[in-house]
Structure formats: structure tokens, C-alpha cells
Design a protein around this nucleic acid. Structure first.
Lengths: 130, 130
DNA sequence: CATTCATATGAACAGCTGTTCAATCATTCA
DNA sequence: TGAATGATTGAACAGCTGTTCATATGAATG
């Protein structure tokens, strides 16, 4: 079965009848929707992937709670190796969720505005439904 | 090297000197940060994982742009099989990003408030940096 | 009640991810 | 300059993910 046949059936069910023009009109409305998908959403996807991991999520939470943290302050707070924390911070930096500041041999990390907006969006959920 | 040794070195570098009490105080501040990580963030993680996939991201974008869409309207707009769309919608429902409404054999989907907040958080990024 | 249609589900499998270990880099300081 | 320290990187590999194909479900209809 073709997609437009299914669409025609849908319109018939919804409206009671369906001519070719109705199918055309619906297809137009649908293709207009596609324009609302950003043309380049790689960065969005990268940010979501980055936050969708236990370690990286925890690190972002810690950094949004603190002004700034040194790697050696983050490491004892999460239950993975120092190397895993470093990988996590590197991934988060690439995803635009944290920024890095060097000071001697120490590296300080901060969360970005994007990270903070996302965390807020998640937190607004609690105690609110729909 | 122990973690608290590294922390002591950090404080010495920052402040110029460091006694046991300083290390204690810093450890207290750090453990306070952990309380800002939600005790149960599985739902957050699920939402991020769900949005961190090409197909599911596109579907959420389409649903936030439209009031409501039938499966047969979504399928022609994304470049995967009908089955993949169904899996995507199922995953998104589990993640709390979309809701489902039955009407005869048709299934209509809508984005949730959480999905809309997350999309807004991503969109605010464009044209704004830090 | 058999059929058709819209959608969902399960199995399977290629490809991706996240962790650790080992090695390396970069900075400081004796 | 070379040893020490903080952090990063790369390889490796177990485990997870996302897609498709085949099949099932459930509602409508003849």
C-alpha cells in the first residue's frame, strides 16, 4: 500500500470524503512541517547524546550546581576512573555543554548556558505534568 | 596518589597554604554538590537518550511543530521504515516525550510539555552564546 | 467470521558506546 | 633538565542501540 493511499483513507475517515485536492492539501501541510526541523541539528543531537549517559549527566549536574570545578574535585564525586571523567569532560566540551579553563596544571570546568537551559527544562518536569 | 592529597595540593595552589581543616571544608562543599544531583534521574536520562537519536529527534520536532499527527502522516516525512517509526514512537512514549491517542485503527501522537521545553532549550542556543 | 488495514512487536545483527588500562602530554619545580 | 604531578589520549573490548524483516494484534467492514 502506498503512503498517499493511507493518507487518503485517513482524510476520508476524518472528513467523510476525500478528493485529490484534499490529499494534495494535506501533503502540503505535512511538508511544511519538515521546515520546522532545523536544517543542521547535529549539534542538538550531540548535546542530547552527551547528556544521555550516566557519568556525563552527573558531571553536568555537578557543574551546574557549582560555579566551577577542577577535574580533581569532580573525580571523587562520580564512581568511575579518572580517565573516564576526563573522557566525559572532553565529550561534554565537544557537545558544547561545558567549557574549560587552564590554570597551571589544573583544569577548571564550567557548564554552558545550553547545559543550564537543558537542566532547567528537565527540572521543570518535576511536580508538573503536561 | 590519594584523592585528598590532590585536593590538598589544589587548595595550596589556590590559597597559598592548606591545613587539615581546609581540606575538610572543601570536602564538605563538594559533598553538598552531590545533593544537587536528583536522587532518581532515570527519567531524565531516558529523555536525553530518546532525543539523542536521529529518527526520534526528527519525530519530536515534527510533533512539536504540529498539534497532533497520525502515524501515517509521520512515516512519509522521515527516511526509515514504518516499523522504525513505530519503534521510535514507542520509545518516545516510554521516555515521556510524546503521548498517544487511539481513534479506530489510527493512532495520533502529540508531544508533551517536557519535549517542548527541551526543544525550546535547544533553540534558544541559536544566536546566543554563553 | 474472514479479510483488510493501521500499527505494534520480536528477533537478529551490524555498528556504536563507555569503560578501563597503559601510555603520553604539559606544566612546575628542584 | 629531569622528576613529579595533573590531566588527556588511544586501544581494546564487552555491552548496548537502531534498523529491518517477518509476524502479530486489534479494530473495522463485508
Amino acid at each position: 500500500m502506498s503512503e498517499s493511499t493511507r493518507l487518503r483513507n485517513l482524510i476520508e475517515d476524518e472528513v467523510g470524503s476525500c478528493c485529490d485536492a484534499d490529499v494534495e492539501a494535506r501533503l502540503d501541510r505535512l511538508s511544511e512541517l519538515v521546515t520546522h526541523v532545523p536544517s543542521d541539528y547535529d549539534a542538538d543531537l550531540a548535546a542530547m547524546k552527551a547528556l544521555g549517559n550516566d557519568t556525563r549527566y552527573q558531571v553536568v549536574r555537578l557543574l551546574t550546581a557549582a560555579d566551577e570545578l577542577c577535574v580533581c574535585e569532580i573525580t571523587p564525586l562520580v564512581d568511575v576512573s579518572e580517565s573516564a571523567v576526563s573522557h566525559a569532560l572532553s565529550d561534554l566540551t565537544d557537545a558544547g555543554l561545558v567549557t574549560r579553563r587552564k590554570e597551571g596544571t589544573w583544569r577548571y570546568y564550567q557548564s554552558t548556558a545550553l547545559a543550564e537551559r537543558l537542566v532547567s527544562a528537565l527540572d521543570a518536569e518535576r511536580g508538573d505534568d503536561e
